[in-house]
Amino acid sequence: MRIRWGILSTAHIAVNRVIAAMQKSQYGEVVAIASRDQHRAERAAKRLAIAKAYGSYEELLQDPQIDAVYNPLPNHLHLPWTLAAMEHGKHVLIEKPMTCTAAEALQLVQACERRPNLKVMEAFMYRFHPQWEQVRTLISQGAIGALRSVHVWFSYFNSNPDDYRHHPQMGGGGLLDVGCYCVSVARLLFKKEPVRLSAMMELDPRSQVDRHVSALLEFPNGMGSFTCATHMAFGQQVLIHGERAAILVEAPFIPPADRPARIILKREKTGEEILVPQADHYTLQADAFSRAVMKNAPLPWTVTDAWNNLRVLDAIKQSGETKAWVAL
């Protein structure tokens, strides 16, 4: 048995990255794609060797031959089309962020409680790359001593005014686009939720979406900090400090496709290079989701985790707007 996937939209990330990775999955196959334009759907289907092309999302959801849906629509459409897919009995993998706000995410938590037979997960693909298993193992085995600090950087330059990320009503802004990774990885490593935070936020003067955010997060067992930006040179890095050593993850979210990922374990006087073999985290994510559906097993990450991530993102936005500490 293989899970039959339908793709909601011809979004750039889907047609240029995720679909090809899903087609390498051991446990799934992409059988249909939908667009609001039939010709666009047909072009994408031909290019990607997908059997069915639909001229509306609703048509795809009505197809009884589809088991699961990947939703890479603009952020403001994640909630309505995920709820619609669930109404049609489909499992859903939702591109990050799961929704635009924690209040919206709570609606999905409640929808999943009403339909426990359906699997719904936020697509934070980075968590499936083996380099993060390596990092978490190093920390759990005491390689750096007690974890005390996680600092994250994720930035790129986006000057396209037509991109939905430049439209507030579509869930635009750098905080939801790349800041969500920064918060997610800090929560992943500390294994707890932050108790309070403070943030600074710079808005784009034309679009009024956030384009540069820096934040300090207080966890019960340490401190997290990050900078994310959408009008800055590309960069990504996670620096993890313990009481005795530190870990540098050079490419935490978009690891190289043509060579091993590199982790540096830094001690006071020495450094150790750890190379993690190449892996496609999008394929691994699709496999993990498909296995959970096939076996009716728990997903590796729940919608409640996504809701908690969005609670932090909401608080960061509030702090950036009020210029005050926010308790969670």
Rank of each mutant, 00 (worst) to 15 (best):
C182H: 10
W325F: 13
S319E: 05
L175T: 02
R311M: 07
Q236T: 01
V31M: 09
A233K: 06
R206L: 15
A68K: 00
P130Q: 14
R127N: 14
A34L: 03
V135G: 02
T82M: 11
C112I: 04
A229R: 04
N117Y: 14
Q237M: 13
L8Y: 04
L106S: 10
H231E: 11
L83W: 06
T283F: 05
Q26G: 11
D67N: 09
I66F: 02
L275A: 13
V92F: 07
M22I: 07
S225A: 15
T302A: 04
C112K: 12
R244I: 05
G142F: 12
K192V: 09
A68F: 05
K323L: 13
G224E: 07
P72M: 02
A44S: 05
S140I: 12
N308D: 11
F234P: 15
K191V: 11
S140K: 14
P116A: 06
R36G: 03
A229K: 01
N75Q: 10
V152E: 11
A233R: 14
L189T: 13
A257D: 14
V152S: 14
R4N: 14
P277N: 01
I50W: 00
W307H: 03
V312M: 04
V150N: 08
Q236K: 07
S35K: 00
D163A: 15
A324H: 12
W81F: 15
S159F: 14
K46S: 06
L147Q: 13
I263V: 15
L118R: 13
V178Y: 04
I7M: 12
A288E: 02
G224C: 15
H166W: 09
E250P: 00
L284V: 00
M121E: 14
Q237S: 10
E218K: 09
K317P: 06
I139W: 12
S56N: 02
H76Y: 15
Y156T: 10
I274D: 11
N16I: 05
A261F: 03
P256S: 03
Q65M: 08
M170I: 01
G145D: 07
Q237H: 11
V31D: 01
R43Y: 01
I3T: 11
L8H: 06
G235Y: 15
I66R: 00
A85Y: 07
